[in-house]
């Protein structure tokens, strides 16, 4: 309450509603992968990816299941050490930096995050504040503010006292996004932040990330499966196939029928989205042709 009461009411940006400590505009920080190979045990999963994440933009990674999207994100987020090549954050080798320094700039939301048994939403989101707390500096008013803002922005404000394990899949997913917001890194890596969400909340979360990007300069890198949302929200689209970058660039240039065929093995038509003009992928599939050509037969057979 006090957060908002003392602020001028004529501004309508997110930044205006964020507490003082979190107010600064994020400085654009470069994140560059150079010939990165990533492996689990001996099996190489990502083969020499070169990727310059555009600072201050929204990058979306798409690709078939198991093509190495999450693995690449782990490499970018310092969770997985490259077996060859390197990742540089702000020009420094990620592996040589102190983890806490990385964490204050770079945050990663894994595809399947784990919540400790019995933890409340408030506590969980609060743990996102760790990189902002020194070895001895404990919970502060700024931390509390940041957590309240994060909960409000993700529409989880009414869940603060609830146990995470008691939430629905979609509520839980939004709590995880809230934790990332509380961490407030200038580069956010999110692995499928919209899984489990209904269509309205998917758009909500993506709008929120887009707003953060626009108003605060947060660099967003996320993996999405929904190609149409990916095309709509991405400034920069990265299409992966079998551990390599197949294509990258503006969605309008990258996403065409050939690309979808090659990356997903799916026959599709690509048409302009009636709302935004971004590419809209309409799958044809095996049954698609029948629906158009032999609709009568189909109706008869059912």
């Amino acid at each position: 309450m006090s957060l908002v009461a003392e602020r001028p009411t004529d501004l309508r940006t997110i930044t205006d509603r964020l507490p003082a400590e979190a107010l600064q505009h994020h400085e654009p920080v470069s994140l560059v992968a150079r010939g990165v190979h990533l492996a689990y045990d001996q099996r190489t999963v990502v083969h020499g990816v070169d990727l310059a994440v555009p600072a201050g933009a929204v990058t979306v990674i798409v690709g078939a299941n198991g093509c190495g999207k999450s693995t690449l994100l782990r490499g970018l987020g310092r969770i997985l050490k490259p077996t060859a090549g390197s990742v540089e954050l702000g020009g420094q080798d990620l592996q040589r930096m102190r983890p806490r320094d990385v964490a204050s700039v770079l945050g990663l939301l894994p595809q399947q995050p784990v919540a400790p048994e019995g933890i409340t939403v408030a506590d969980l989101v609060g743990r996102g504040r760790h990189p902002h707390q020194g070895a001895f500096r404990r919970w502060s008013a700024a931390d509390a503010d940041a957590v309240a803002v994060a909960l409000a922005l993700t529409d989880t404000h009414e869940l603060a006292g609830r146990r995470v394990e008691e939430l629905s899949g979609g509520q839980r997913q939004r709590v995880w996004v809230a934790m990332m917001l509380a961490q407030d890194p200038s580069i956010m890596l999110l692995d499928e932040p919209t899984t489990y969400l209904d269509i309205a909340h998917q758009v909500d979360v993506l709008d929120l990330l887009a707003e953060l990007n626009e108003e605060r300069g947060t660099t967003v890198v996320m993996v999405l499966h929904e190609l149409n949302l990916a095309a709509r929200y991405a400034d920069h689209l990265v299409v992966m196939c079998e551990g390599r970058v197949l294509r990258e660039g503006a969605p309008g240039e990258v996403l065409d029928a050939d690309c979808v065929q090659e990356a997903f093995g799916l026959t599709a038509r690509v048409v302009p989205d009636p709302v935004t003009g971004s590419p809209l992928v309409v799958p044809v599939g095996r049954r698609g042709a029948r629906v158009v050509d032999v609709a009568d037969d189909e109706a008869a057979s059912m």
Binding site: L3, V4, R17, L151, L153, E211
Partner: peptide
């Protein structure tokens, strides 16, 4: 990037209310 907000005033008021609820819940 973000879709144009149709009712910014209402939206803002709603968010402020949510934040107040969140703060209270946290406390």
């Amino acid at each position: 990037m973000s879709a144009p907000t149709l009712a910014p005033e209402a939206d803002r008021a709603a968010r402020e209310a949510r934040q107040a609820v969140a703060g209270e819940g946290l406390r």
